[in-house]
Simulated assay, not measured.
Amino acid sequence: MNNPNGDPTPRTIEQVRQAIAALREIFDAKFYGYDKAIDLLQEASNRQPTPGTVDERLTALKEIVEIRFHELDVRTNALALSNKNSIDLALQAAKEAAAKSENAVSKQIEAISAQHSQAVSSLETRINDTKEQVITIVAGGQGSRQSYGVIYAIAGISISFVGVMVLIISKVI
């Protein structure tokens, strides 16, 4: 169906219009896709920090860290001072307790020494009395039975003396 005058036929014109409409839809879809891709890229770009914002955030973070370290130094110094004061007070209390303990031990030693002196004096008196009795018995010429009695008495007194000495020494130690 050739048209003798060369003009396009109405059907050809309709087909051209349909082809143009189809191309328009294809181009609209492509442009819409490109617009969506550009929007997505823009959105992703907006989420990514720029070098300037990264520098600002790092500077702010550095300032926060420096403040925290300064606060930590202040707290550590305060704690060290508090610990030093506590240790000084504890050492002073220990010195006072040691002095009191030393005084108490000195008093105990003096008391034990006084008891020891008294016990020794008492034993010396008993020994002297026993000696006098032995001398009297020996000088008087009384029998050997009385001599044995005196010896037993001296032995008993000696054993008592040793027992008292052991008791006194064990209290001192």
Rank of each mutant, 00 (worst) to 15 (best):
L167T: 15
S158Q: 12
A21I: 00
S170R: 15
H116A: 10
S147I: 09
A114N: 14
D7H: 13
G141S: 10
G149L: 05
V150D: 15
K84Q: 13
R24Y: 03
I87G: 00
V120H: 05
D39F: 02
L41H: 01
I127G: 00
R75P: 00
K107M: 08
V74T: 14
K30T: 04
I13L: 14
T53Q: 14
L123W: 11
S122W: 07
D55A: 15
S86W: 01
A19H: 02
I157L: 09
T59L: 11
T9Q: 03
D28H: 04
I13A: 11
I157M: 02
I67H: 08
P8K: 15
V65M: 09
E71A: 04
D28T: 15
E14Q: 12
L81Q: 09
P8N: 14
T50C: 03
E25L: 02
Q42V: 15
V105Y: 05
Q133P: 01
A94E: 12
L89I: 06
V134Y: 09
E56Q: 15
L91W: 04
V162H: 01
V150A: 14
G6P: 00
S122T: 13
D28Y: 03
G149Q: 12
R24E: 15
I67V: 06
S86G: 06
D7Q: 13
R17C: 10
S147Q: 11
R145Y: 08
R24A: 07
V74D: 02
S170L: 13
I159P: 01
K62W: 02
K36L: 07
G6W: 05
R145L: 12
Y34I: 10
R68L: 06
R57D: 12
G140V: 11
